[in-house]
Amino acid sequence: MSEIKKFLYVNRKAPYGTIYALESLEVVLIGAAFDQDVSLAFLDDGVFQLLKKQDTAGIGVKNFSPTFRALGDYDVTKFYVEQESLTERGLTADDLMDITYEDEDDDYEEKPSIRVVNRDEMAAIMGDQDVVLSF
């Protein structure tokens, strides 16, 4: 067994204008097979990825936002969202999807995956990783 490392996926781009957001999600899904300590960070335009009620029928691309809700099954349970990025964009935590995971260490109780943090906390989280992957 190799040592478990802390991986942070940093998401700073809106979902459909570029391929970054979808690529990030795919790498998270692939990386989940390696049993590492994975966290996701959403800041700047990245917070738009988590908005409720996305419907891509009119633009002919896949709506991948529901897939974030499956990440709990992949043991990806930490979604850090930056408060300042939300506020700058006129958003609050209520505008974000409900994303939960079942805590295996707590009788499979359903818990929220999204944790809103401020900018200083986000900086500290980034500074506490073994590997940072940016999208």
Partner: peptide, 18 residues
Amino acid sequence: DYYEEYQIAPAVRVLIKA
């Protein structure tokens, strides 16, 4: 049903767990 809800085909360990 899983795909309908999450827009993803689950990995095998995730499928078995679910």
